[in-house]
Amino acid sequence: MLVLGIETSCDETAVAVVNKNRKILSNVILTQIQEHKPYGGIVPELAARAHLKQLHFIIDEAMKKARINFTDITAIAATAGPGLIGGLLVGVTMAKAMASVHEKPFLAINHLAGHALIPRLTDRVKFPYLLLLTSGGHCQLLVVEGADSFNRIGTTKDDALGEVFDKVAKMLGLGIPGGPVVQKCAEAGNSSRFLLPRPMLGRTGCDFSFSGLKTAVRFLIEKFPANRLTSEDIADICASFQLAATEAVVDRTGHAIDICKKNYPRINRLVISGGVAANTKLRRCLKTLTAAKDFQFTAPPIDLCTDNAVMIAWAALEKLNKEQINNKNDDMSFKPRPRWPLSQKNQLI
């Protein structure tokens, strides 16, 4: 069983081919191709037009790398939400068109389900498990009970963590993407020089809030005379911010583990996914937390934590595994959903 997956929900244009034995036959992301600039070096931009221009090249590339043609493919899957509507429309329409021409089933995949299920491909993680999904657009704690059964037990009330990293980087004039650059600056910094708030620390439940921390960083920067931040100051601000953000996440995740122990005694594993899972400080602290709480810890490889199409193809394979392929025809009427929560259940809080 072989699935072609398409991911266009945000900035990345990505296509991958994956089989049911967890083998990644190809994994093409435009930003990688970018290095070779075979198509004129167009940077993926916000507009749907960019996805539209690039997508068919990337599909060709992914199929060539996987050494397959359409007759080999079992189904075609695309991210159908949540995300930016223009990009979603491009990916979904392309997938539907290919599916009808080649008479294959089309599968509409939730981007968050992709992030949630990828550790089952990379680390053979068994259901159920606790997932911390944190990226530029999301920050959630989910109980993953099955390929189509998720229970969200915590979410950000305002900004996503990756977004706050980006905005802190912007305020410090460090450029984007903020995650890697703030982490790099923080390495040389003193994290105890500035005391920043740990949002929601100690509160019941496991929701997040980061906008207060963002505002606090802003006030901190404004205490310095304009343009008088030394590289040492910047490093210290980054380190202090990263520590505050990490401690907030660790506190919330600790609560989530406690909730699991009480309500889901079968769960003994925390998995992280999403772009912010690339942050090594966060990984280290979560490892310590899980060890202290007698939980296993799994973090997929960084290139499969950030947005990619492997996770979309894999989520489709999980779906196919559960359902009859023949029942998938009605998915052709599926409209992209810019907001598409995995679960609205908040039954524990």
Binding site: A160, G162, P338
Partner: peptide
């Protein structure tokens, strides 16, 4: 409605 910062998705309807 859960209204989050739309900085990342740019538009929410």
């Amino acid at each position: 409605e859960e209204v989050l910062s739309p900085s990342f998705p740019i538009l929410q309807i």
